[in-house]
Amino acid sequence: MSFNSRMKRALSGLAIATCLVGAIPAFSFAQGLPGLTLWGGVKREDNLNFRLDYGGRSGSWDRYRLRIPEKKMQLAVAQFAISYPDYYKGEFDPKRVEVLVKDKPVPLQEVNWNKENHMIEIFPVDPIPAGSRVEIQLSNVRNPSFGGMFYFNCQVLSPGDVPLLRYLGTWVISIT
């Protein structure tokens, strides 16, 4: 075997190894972000963006950053209600819930975790203005022991509105 062919093989192997090593951090970083749904599920316009700060591993502690874009906030919001499926066996800490509007925390009047009805209710002191970019942070979350895909639905109540929750969208959260 000539020197040139050995050199080409060595460079090819090095290139493949570099790609594989570079893919590992990108893959682990992507675990905390929304994935790709191939079929079924939520309509594209109803899919809300999120981030899991600590990778969404089953049985571990995490922080959920549930985002609502400006275009979804068509009316002011006096209450957020986040429902989740009954098979989600994680735990939430109502004392560690925060609402950020345009990256600034807003004071909260009350946060209720209704375990029986699988819902987290968040009441800001003042209504969140229409057209605001909102991020709901659920810190100190204990992920369920078994992984799966969980649909977290966001509903809101506007001030002075008929007291019925209005659907805004869904976060499709995958725990591995």
Results as ranks from 00 to 15, higher is better:
Leu165Glu: 13
Phe123Pro: 00
Asn47Met: 06
Gly22Asn: 02
Ala23Arg: 00
Phe92Pro: 02
Trp171Ile: 08
Glu110Asp: 12
Asn49Thr: 07
Arg65Asn: 11
Glu116Ile: 13
Ala10Val: 14
Arg44Pro: 00
Tyr151Thr: 00
Leu138Gly: 03
Glu110Trp: 11
Tyr54Thr: 00
Cys19Glu: 04
Asp126Trp: 11
Cys19Met: 10
Ile128Met: 13
Tyr84Leu: 05
Tyr87Trp: 05
Asp46Pro: 03
Met1Gly: 11
Met119Val: 12
Asp53His: 01
Pro94Gln: 07
Ile16Asn: 05
Pro107Thr: 06
Glu98Gly: 04
Asp46Lys: 04
Asp62Ala: 00
Lys115Leu: 06
Asp126Gln: 15
Lys102Tyr: 15
Gly160Trp: 13
Trp61Tyr: 04
Ser174Met: 03
Ala81Ser: 14
Val111Ala: 08
Ala17Met: 03
Leu164Ala: 13
Asp161Val: 14
Arg96Lys: 14
Lys8Gln: 15
Ser60Glu: 12
Cys19Ser: 10
Arg142Ala: 11
Val21Thr: 01
Thr37Leu: 02
Val77Ala: 12
Thr176Ser: 01
Arg96Leu: 08
Asn49Ser: 08
Tyr167Thr: 15
Gly35Tyr: 01
Ala26Thr: 12
Val162Trp: 12
Arg44Ser: 12
Lys71Tyr: 13
Ile175Lys: 00
Ala10Phe: 15
Ala78Ser: 15
Gly13Arg: 13
Gly90Ala: 14
Ser5Cys: 08
Pro124Arg: 02
Arg142Ser: 09
Pro34Phe: 04
Arg9Ala: 14
Ser58Gln: 07
Tyr84Asn: 09
Val77Gln: 06
Tyr54Phe: 07
Asp126Gly: 07
Pro94Tyr: 10
Val101Phe: 03
Ser83Gly: 14
Lys71Leu: 01
Ile24Thr: 09
Pro105Arg: 13
Tyr54His: 07
Gly41Asn: 06
Ser83Asp: 15
Gly90Gln: 13
Phe27Ser: 01
Asn49Phe: 11
Leu168Arg: 14
Leu48Phe: 02
Tyr84Phe: 15
Phe92Thr: 05
Asp161Asn: 10
Phe3Val: 15
Asn49Arg: 09
Leu66His: 08
Lys104Trp: 07
Gly22Lys: 00
Lys71Phe: 12
Thr176Asn: 03
Gly160Cys: 07
Phe123Gln: 00
Trp61Phe: 06
Phe3Asn: 12
Phe152Cys: 03
Gln137Arg: 09
Cys154Val: 15
Ser139Pro: 02
Tyr88Asp: 10
Phe152Ile: 01
Tyr151Trp: 09
His118Met: 05
Arg44Trp: 09
Pro34Asp: 05
Pro159His: 14
Cys19Trp: 01
His118Asp: 07
Ile16Pro: 02
Gly22Val: 06
Ser132Lys: 08
Glu121Ser: 05
Glu70Asp: 10
Arg142Gln: 11
Phe146Ser: 07
Lys89Gln: 12
Ile175Tyr: 02
Leu33Tyr: 03
Met7Gly: 04
Val141Ala: 12
Lys43His: 11
Met7Gln: 12
Pro127Thr: 11
Val134Gln: 06
Val125Ser: 11
Ile136Cys: 02
Phe29Thr: 02
Lys71Gln: 09
